[in-house]
Structure formats: C-alpha cells, structure tokens
C-alpha cells in the first residue's frame, strides 16, 4: 500500500534499537534460567523488572519479526496470490503468538 514505506522503515529501526539492549538482557536471563522448573521460572518472572522487560521483549520481538518477514515476502514472492497469503499469514501468526505469549506470562505470574 502506498505511503506505508516510510513508517515501515522507521518502525523497523525503532524496534531494532529497542531490541538491541532487550536481547542482551534476554540472553543473560536465559543463562540463569537453564533447566529451571516452573516454580523457578515463576519466581524469576515475578520480579517486576523481569515481568516488564519480558512483556516488552515479546511485543517488540514479534513486531520486528512481522516487519522483517513482510519485507522478505514483498521482495522474493512474486506470485500475487502467494504474496498476499504470505503477508496475511505473517500478520496472523505474529499477532496470535504475541498475544498468547503475553497472556501466558501473566497466567504464569498471577494465575492459580
């Protein structure tokens, strides 16, 4: 669609800048979470900083992913139908996984 190029480019960079420190935090966190059970995971996730950063990381990651895959489909899938289907699938998968993951984070922390 017309006139979306600039905002797409801009959001791609914005999410990239946000993801750089978030990814380092995530990498560091995974080292501490290796082989932990659910109680340990819940204890870690319940820290307010970890809860906020996890949620931010998941949302930013899936948005960045959606923008990136979108560009790849636009550049390499020339078949009109496949192109449209690919873009729709990308949107659905990104949104569904983002929502499911964020809901899961809150279920783990605040659920029974």
């Amino acid at each position: 669609m017309a006139r979306e190029g600039v905002s797409h480019w801009w959001y791609q960079r914005l999410t990239a800048v946000a993801l750089a420190p978030l990814t380092l935090w995530f990498v560091w966190s995974t080292i501490q979470l290796m082989g932990v059970d659910l109680a340990g995971f819940r204890a870690w996730l319940s820290g307010p900083v970890n809860l906020v950063l996890s949620t931010l990381f998941v949302c930013t990651l899936f948005y960045h992913m959606k923008l990136g895959i979108q560009v790849i489909i636009e550049d390499y899938v020339h078949d009109h139908v496949l192109n449209s289907l690919g873009l729709i699938a990308t949107n659905i998968v990104s949104v569904v996984f983002c929502v499911l993951t964020v809901v899961s984070i809150f279920v783990i922390v605040f659920g029974s």
């Binding site: 659910l38 992913m65 990136g68 895959i69 790849i72 998968v93 996984f97 993951t101 984070i105 279920v107």
Partner: peptide
C-alpha cells in the same frame, strides 16, 4: 532473520507451555 523468527515461535511455545502448568 528468518531462522530467528522460526526459533522465536519455539521460544514462545516454551513460555506458553508454562501457562499450562508444571
């Protein structure tokens, strides 16, 4: 980027699994 996207879905599944219990 594509590899990371696929892996992220796996990572998300790991978190989602946590919501289903121990």
């Amino acid at each position: 980027g594509v590899v990371l996207s696929v892996g992220s879905l796996g990572l998300a599944s790991w978190i989602i699994a946590g919501a289903f219990g121990e």
